[in-house]
Write a protein that binds this DNA or RNA. Structure first.
Lengths: 111, 111
DNA sequence: AGTATGTTCTATGGCATAGAACAAATAGGG
DNA sequence: CCCTATTTGTTCTATGCCATAGAACATACT
């Protein structure tokens, strides 16, 4: 394979990190994604690939200080690396190409 | 999981079948996809998931008559089922939601 | 203690991917 | 006219990695 692209879960996770900005930690990402997609995501389905994305260099993380709230534990905050951003741009480009005709020729209806 | 969505290769394959219409058979799909994505796809990376998509009810196929051309063998022509189309619509919808902010807030540049 | 928020750990099955093997049609030189 | 080479196409199957689930663990407040 020339160079593999991101899987769908990985794409969604990176986008979530991008959107949540300084508040991108595991559970927040999970909630966010569940709302966006309308589907259930197990805890593992979030944390495991996040780890992998960090190892591959698309994300970096650091641990926050605990907050004085009920259950306010330290959080592991994620951030896109330059490579991660580049990857999103690339995906965005490919997506646009892939879907352009479909969007144009197949409006709302669903039959 | 509420109901799993298509993987990226599956998404790309369905879109290719949709675009190629009455000419959607294995090798044509492969060529098409390689051009669209600019990446190498092995034969297996095309046929194996096509099979799976048919088993799951997103595609149906029939065998064409052989053509009187060099190597003009029977082809296995694929077609989207109603469920397959529905799935593409659904993906299209989710994609739009996922990417809308990114597209708006992050134009061409890549830094 | 009890409850809420958060992360780590680890097992399992399924999918992605590669590429050899197989099949069948025509071309074309002897 | 064969018979072999070439072209186009599909099937088969092995391997590793990823997706996903959920229990276990950690820690802060009440």
């Amino acid at each position: 394979m020339t160079e593999k692209y991101l899987s769908r879960p990985e794409e969604i996770l990176l986008l979530a990190v991008w959107k949540l900005r300084e508040n991108a930690y595991g559970l927040a990402i999970r909630n966010f994604i569940q709302e966006m997609t309308g589907k259930y995501w197990s805890v593992g389905a979030v944390y495991v690939p996040l780890e992998r994305l960090e190892n591959r260099g698309f994300l970096k993380s650091h641990t926050s200080d605990p907050k004085p709230e009920r259950g306010g534990r330290r959080k592991r905050l994620f951030q896109l690396t330059r490579a991660g951003l580049r990857e999103l741009d690339e995906l965005n480009r490919i997506n646009a190409v892939l879907w352009q005709d479909y969007r144009r020729l197949r409006p709302e209806e669903n039959t």
